[in-house]
Design a protein around this nucleic acid. Structure first.
Lengths: 397, 397
DNA sequence: ACAGTTTCCCGTAAATGC
DNA sequence: TGCATTTACGGGAAACTG
């Protein structure tokens, strides 16, 4: 009857941060007979725990300008605040973590027509309330999990006993996320690689994923959208792919052991015929904000024992000459601050041939995986018919 | 009778940012006869413009635990908010900029002793209210100017017609600021050099000064405190100092044309006997947070036409071997992320001998200077007796 | 002592007001 | 329209609280 939606954090709907403004909209889907009175709607937050709406929450419905004459009302500048209880009762819950506690907004209206009093009431999809952006990955994981696995409009107890997802369901959401955040989704190979990573477990899988999404959004967008970042290759796969390639062939992947890092691995042929693989220490947002990634690739140099430094990166896997791939993305940055000599940072690895710092052979850091409700899913199924379009619909982006 | 103080921003007292908590304390300096009633103090903000105290502002005085039994009370978590007038009247003022508008807190108490009713009232030193940290430099300049030039406890109209400062007064505050913020104040030469810069006028002198203080505090502390940063040399002075020195002698100074930048200038002897001076493009917080300044000095390289890169920095002026000066400050950072090859950013300047990018001879960017109430002071006087101690007292740090 | 959670607030970006 | 000022809020860190 009404259709609530819930943007707050751009691109991550259904998550509300306390103290930060959000917007919601209600539409009346039935067409009423001409009425000459005002239809007031009141928005309230669920009673389940300790939050309330700080700002004005009542508003009059209005005819939508742009569409079919439906009545609708948009609440802006709503803000959630935590109730402070004097005694220690913290509402209910407590068993689940904050990011798994589901809430909802309710909308009420009441009108009288032809002597008949009608109460209208509806509510939003389940929401997650957080107090700091650091909780966003967890919250977002919950929102996705819920909408992936149930069609119930309001099962706030969902995470009391969350169902399992199949790999095909999950992989779809994963790809959808990348395409939403960055434009370019995940291809079949990348999904498979990601799936294989889901089995390890240092930090939460979602945390790790989010750190990658953020890194892409802020520092790797063009490179990602050119599809140049393989991203989730395992060490073994990496070797398999690179070993028969031209020396200097490299590929790009995200760090498995560090949050929000990207590295490149290149292949090198030793004089004795051995093949050697090198991965550079991952670049994180800190360094990337001082030097764009494409420039890092252009300028990267290795110095061995004081010899003239050389850039070991020649071909992007499988065989695209580096400058052909990245040429357009370089920042031609000889900055013109006139009295000064232009200077730039360049990324360097210094190698001593006295072995010590050569990379070890195979001991790859373990891949990440989520704890909590996500320790399931190893069954690989084939493709469902759900499309990303459905997802977008569901979350009302 | 009472003694108010006013920290908010650490190290910058007497500046209050709206929406940010601050603390104030009132002490009763006269000793009362034993009383068995409570002495309530109320804090109010001046009526002059559009601010009020958001939080609870009444509190009971208490005997100070640590001292001579004085009554005192400390208000914590006070917060200022702007009044919103429905019509456009914005209080008074409007002629001065926000950072030159002076305000004050008042403290009132009332008690009865032996049938005699006594009203007590006092107020703080003039305060500046800002709404964003970007206004901090301006506000701080006002606070300093006021306390430097008047002893009046509460002349809120001070900036209606601000008096001029002598150079000796000003230079003292300048040095005091550096010592407060960074530990190491300014020596006579640095002060003289700073004074000479006061004559130009791109952006506000105080803005520029603040950007330098921040840079020091966040990225240059050890180097500054070793007294290795000359800081404020003019281009001419720089040449005079360096020209007879060993090739590779360098000095460190702040950028005059860019906010919050530091650069080094080194001297070079050409084959034909000419002396050449080079200044690197200034490093700002962005790059410094990716690479500490000492490491920049250690690793800086110049590549000329593809020749083996060389670090042109040999001696810190006058003649301290670079590693001797900076050795302790280097970050030995071969990070041990095991499967990876350690990598670092290194600062490089690339020179083509085809002239185009060689630094021009003498056209130095103009030095900064403050507009507004500070366009005065060219008279150089000799030293007053005011000490920094007095300053600290005055501003109650 | 500690982990999960919230609060605090700088600093950038955007919005607002004049 | 542009400048001065305020608001918004992400993000790192400190404070809180069972």
């Amino acid at each position: 009857e009404k259709q609530p939606c819930m943007p707050t954090h751009p691109q991550k709907p259904l998550i509300i941060k306390t103290g930060v403004q959000f917007t919601t909209k209600v539409r009346l889907l039935v067409k009423l007979p001409e009425v000459d009175y005002q239809l007031k709607v009141k928005t309230t937050f669920d009673k389940s725990r300790q939050f309330f709406i700080l700002t004005n929450n009542t508003k009059v419905m209005d005819i939508e300008d742009y569409s079919n004459g439906c009545l609708s009302v948009e609440f802006r500048h709503l803000q959630l605040k935590e109730k402070k209880y004097i005694n220690g009762t913290k509402g209910n819950e407590g068993l689940l973590s904050v990011t798994e506690e589901l809430h909802s907004l309710s909308f009420e209206a009441c009108f009288t027509v032809q002597g008949l009093t009608i109460d209208l009431e509806t509510c939003s999809l389940p929401l997650v309330v957080i107090s700091n952006v650091s909780q966003l990955p967890g919250g977002w994981a919950s929102v996705m999990w819920y909408n992936l696995l149930t069609d119930e409009p309001r099962n706030l107890a969902f995470f009391g006993n969350p169902p399992r997802a199949t790999w095909s369901q999950l992989s779809e959401v994963l790809s959808w996320q990348f395409s939403t955040f960055a434009g370019q989704g995940l291809n079949k190979e990348q999904l498979t690689m990601l799936g294989e990573k889901l089995l390890g477990k240092p930090f939460s899988f979602w945390m790790w994923l989010d750190s990658i999404l953020e890194l892409i959004k802020k520092h790797l967008l063009p490179v990602w959208n050119e599809n140049y970042i393989m991203g989730f290759v395992s060490k073994e796969m990496e070797r398999t792919l690179l070993k028969d390639r031209e020396p200097g062939t490299f590929l790009l992947r995200f760090s498995e052991s560090h949050l929000g890092g990207i590295t490149f691995t290149w292949v090198e042929h030793k004089d004795n015929g051995d093949v050697k693989f090198n991965s550079v220490e991952p670049y994180t947002k800190n360094r990337l904000s001082a030097l764009p990634f494409a420039d890092i690739i252009r300028d990267y140099k290795v110095i061995s024992d004081g010899v003239v430094p050389e850039n070991p990166l020649k071909f992007l896997y499988p065989d695209i000459p580096k400058d052909e791939a990245f040429g357009r993305l370089y920042n031609s940055q000889p900055s013109k601050v006139h009295p000064y000599i232009p200077s730039t940072l360049i990324p360097i690895s210094e190698l001593r041939s006295n072995s010590t710092s050569t990379p070890p052979s195979c001991q790859s850091p373990e891949p990440p995986m989520t704890p909590g409700e996500f320790d399931m899913l190893s069954e690989h199924l084939c493709f469902d018919i759900d499309t990303m379009a459905q997802w977008q619909e569901l979350l009302r982006l």
